[in-house]
Every structure is written in structure tokens, then in C-alpha cells.
Nucleic acid binder design. Structure first.
Lengths: 199, 199
DNA sequence: TTAAACATACCAACCAGTATGTATGTAGCA
DNA sequence: TGCTACATACATACTGGTTGGTATGTTTAA
């Protein structure tokens, strides 16, 4: 490194680790690739992070969790109309995908699948992301019910679980198919379902 | 090995590989663990499979694909009532899960997540499993429409994509939460949705 | 002068894969 | 039936490469 800027160095490592993990998974993520990509030396890496595992945790806490909040929490907090807000965010999620990035899937789901049976630290972190996501939708639907926007007959809890799982499943299918169209079609089914929740 | 039984040896390796892959993913699956588990030597393993990759393919072709067919293809081929058949298989899938095995998730989805960006051989194999699954549901819904069981207004293709992605997403959420209840609740939403497809 | 920030060289452990061997079942033939 | 030839089935020991991690530096800012 030419410039001595610890914050910048740390962030560069974190971003490179995020990419490496997203492409190869955590276990197969190679520190050698990360230091090659960032041009940070191994000594500097281990100055900023005590271990590969802790670096992985930092990626989840600081990058993955933040991106989920940006996409699925903040826009769904106290919206005028939760159903419209959900449909908008689904379309927004679709529009962010293209041929090149569809194959990486959802970082949260990737790590959930790979690490949850192996490492409790990852599992708990990812679980709290899913919990926050689901409870935010649950809360939004409940508010929608009391506002008279959402059908009273539905269980908001069941719906919230169902919506999150459908989004993750659609992202997963599309990742494997390497197809934005698969994502669109799968989420079209979800969108139509969400419309039926309207009062 | 005491007894010289090539078919048995091969199957033992395949089963052990399936377990090892299911727990650790393909890349982190260790041949050392597999030969330790089966008490088959490395020479014998490489006599039956030319490489780790080919052994992985064999696991997908001979074990994973077969288990999906048993659960999601055969019972959904030409059923009297596709909606009842779907609901039955979903309940059957739930009932096969317990505290101990919920954390392993769906083998198809696990491999899809991990290997699809990395290896085309895995991706194609898994993709054809998903295709078969989805088209079977699609075909079943189409037959249901012509029999007057399923609403004419729905797109069977969209519904089929949606159903498969919801099942995978629910399995994924439950895996991470290590909770059969999460699976039940998520799939409850799907079951209610499937009921609305009835004419 | 001190500590943070970074750099270099190295390590043991593990990995998939291979080279080379041995034991055993079987097909062909006398 | 008994012997030979051969291929299948399995075993052992090793290799080169990669892994995460560490010990021991040097540089630089405060």
C-alpha cells in the first residue's frame, strides 16, 4: 500500500472479501485472492482482522446486513401502503439484476445455505437478518390491517414467512438457471399473491 | 475391505459422499472423511471414480435426482387432483423433517447455491432437476384446468415457478433457523395459496 | 519514543490426485 | 477338473500445491 489509511484499507479488504465470498462461498474464499485483489499484504490483513472467520463475520455485519436493510427494511418501515411498498421493492430487486450478476444470487441466502450447519456465529448473524426482514413485513402487514388496507382474515405472520421464503427461493432458482426471466416469472407469482392480500 | 463387492463399495462411497457433501458442501467435502467413514481406501475410491468432481456428479445423478423424483415427480404425474396431490406432498415433505435433519436443508438447493456459479457440470445437472420438477407441476396444473379442477384464469407456468421457489425458499429459511416450525409456517402460506388455485 | 500500520518469509496441516503395488475372481483352454 | 492369463478390485505411500495462520521484521505518523 502506498497511502497509509487504515479505514480505507479495512474497507477495501471487506469489499474484496465480500466479492470473493459471494463467488466462491466462505470456505472456498481464498485469502490469497483477497490480498492479490486489494494489493494489501497478509500482514496488513491480519492486522485488521484476527482470523478469516472474524473477517467473514465483519462482512456479514457491515456489508450484507446493511444491504438488506437498504433494500428490504428501510423502504418497508411505516409505509403508506405496505402492499404497494412490497410490490415496489420486488420490482426494484428485479431491476437490479442482469445477466452478469444474476448468477451470484442473494448473499444472505448463499451464506445461510453454506455456513448455517457448520458455524453458529454465521448462523446467528444470518438468522437475525432474516428475523428483522420477516418481522418488518409482519409489522407492515399488521399496520396495513389496522389501516384497512390489508385483509383482516390473513395471518400476517404466515404471510411474512411466506413472502420472505418466496423471494429467497426465486433468487435461488434464478441463480441456478442464470436467468433474469426465471426471477421475473417466479416473482410474478409472488406479486399476484401479494395483490390478493389487499382488502 | 473384507468382502470384495464392487457394487456395494461404490454405493457405500456414494452414500458417504452424499452425507459429506450435504453437511459441508461439495468443495469442502473431504475425500479423507469419506474414506474414513466407509473404511474404503483411497485406491479403491479412485478405482470407482476418476475424480472428486465425477463422484460429485454421480451423487447428483444417482442419489439427489432420484430422491427428488420420488418426492416431487412420481406423486405428481397424472394425479386425480393436482391440488390435492401438491398439498399431500408438501405435508409429506414436512413430516420427513425433524430437529436433527432440518439443518441440512434441500440437497438440490444446497448444491445449486454452492456450485452453479463455479461448475457448469453441476449447474446443468441441477437445472434439469429443477426443470423436471417445475414442468411436472406445470403439466399437472394444465391437466387440472382441462379437467375443471384448476382455475382457468391462472398462468400455470407462473404458478409452477412460484410453487417450486416457495418450497425451496421455505426449506432454506428453516435450515438456517434450524426449526421445523419455520418450515411449517412458511409452507402454510404456500398451502393457502395453492388452495386459491382451485376452481 | 511509541504504537499503529504494513511487509516478508515462513510453517504445519490438509488437499486432491497418482504411482505402484498386491490380492482375488474369472474366462479360456488343455 | 486344473492350470494359466488377465482384468478387476482394492491397498499403501507419496507428491506438489494450497490453505490459514504466525513470527519477525520495517515504516510512518503522532
Amino acid at each position: 500500500m502506498v497511502d497509509r489509511n487504515p479505514d480505507k484499507t479495512r474497507l477495501a479488504l471487506l469489499n474484496a472479501a465480500f466479492d470473493e465470498i459471494n463467488q466462491n462461498g466462505f470456505q472456498a474464499a481464498s485469502l490469497a485472492n483477497i490480498i492479490k485483489e486489494t494489493k494489501v499484504t497478509k500482514g496488513a490483513l491480519y492486522h485488521h482482522f484476527p482470523s478469516k472467520l472474524e473477517m467473514g463475520y465483519a462482512v456479514v455485519d457491515e456489508l450484507v446486513a446493511e444491504s438488506v436493510k437498504e433494500m428490504w427494511i428501510t423502504p418497508l418501515k411505516n409505509p403508506d401502503n405496505i402492499i404497494d411498498a412490497l410490490l415496489l421493492q420486488i420490482d426494484s430487486a428485479i431491476s437490479k439484476r442482469n445477466k452478469e450478476n444474476i448468477c451470484f444470487g442473494c448473499p444472505v441466502n448463499n451464506l445461510a445455505q453454506e455456513m448455517s450447519p457448520i458455524d453458529e456465529g454465521f448462523r446467528e448473524r444470518i438468522n437475525s437478518i432474516f428475523d428483522l426482514w420477516r418481522t418488518t413485513i409482519d409489522e407492515g402487514l399488521k399496520q396495513g390491517q389496522s389501516k384497512g388496507i390489508v385483509k383482516e382474515s390473513i395471518s400476517t405472520e404466515t404471510s411474512a414467512y411466506f413472502i420472505v421464503s418466496a423471494i429467497e427461493g426465486a433468487t435461488s432458482l434464478a441463480k441456478n438457471a442464470k436467468s433474469v426471466d426465471v426471477l421475473k416469472t417466479s416473482l410474478q407469482g409472488l406479486k399476484e399473491h401479494i395483490q390478493t392480500l389487499r382488502k
